[in-house]
């Protein structure tokens, strides 16, 4: 054996190690650039009856907050809604909604039909705040710690599994 003839073997060993690590990573898992960063500071007007709306400074007032971005036109939001209702019933966490590019009447009808898990809801008519939050597909759910920093982000509908295995541990860790 010479070093030259062993070069392909050495390169392959490196490749195999990378492939092995890669098997246990989820290529669909997208990290948020905002994790551990302070939440964006824009405010939103309230959905009628859900005052005071989205007040960014409230996020840094010591309690852990869940921020959920949703819309009445969004199918997956309906799928995750029972999980949000359950979470609200457990009173573990303050829940804030951002109503994304929706109409007022549709949003209210959605809540009337399926129940209302939110303590307050801000209306993001233009999607401007969602852009600040790095939202690219709703529903998305964030956990904000008492200092107003984003500690967790979930893209897509929350399943019971997501709530039990990811969301609740993140809430506990944030407290």
């Amino acid at each position: 054996m010479t070093l030259r003839s062993a070069i392909p073997l050495l390169l392959f060993i490196m490749l195999a190690a990378a492939l092995f690590t890669g098997l246990y990573l989820d290529p669909r898992l997208i990290p948020s650039a905002l994790i551990d960063k302070p939440a964006p500071t824009l405010d939103l007007p309230p959905l009628p009856g859900k005052e005071p709306g989205f007040i960014a400074t409230d996020l840094a007032k010591g309690s852990v907050t869940l921020v959920n971005v949703w819309a009445s036109w969004c199918g997956p939001c309906r799928i995750e809604h029972p999980q949000l209702m359950q979470l609200a019933a457990s009173k573990k966490i303050r829940m804030v909604g951002i109503n994304h590019k929706d109409t007022e009447s549709n949003a209210l009808k959605f809540l009337a039909d399926l129940g209302d898990p939110y303590d307050t809801i801000g209306v993001d008519k233009t999607g401007r705040v969602s852009i600040e939050w790095g939202v690219y597909g709703i529903p998305e759910t964030f956990i904000i710690n008492g200092q107003g920093r984003i500690v967790f982000k979930h893209v897509g509908p929350l399943t019971q599994f997501d709530v039990d295995e990811k969301l609740l541990p993140a809430i506990e860790a944030a407290k």
């Binding site: 054996m1 010479t2 392909p8 073997l9 392959f12 195999a16």
Partner: peptide, 11 residues
């Protein structure tokens, strides 16, 4: 398969 044949190749 690949590792084995590359060892054989190296030798």
């Amino acid at each position: 398969v690949i590792g084995g044949s590359l060892i054989l190749y190296a030798v």
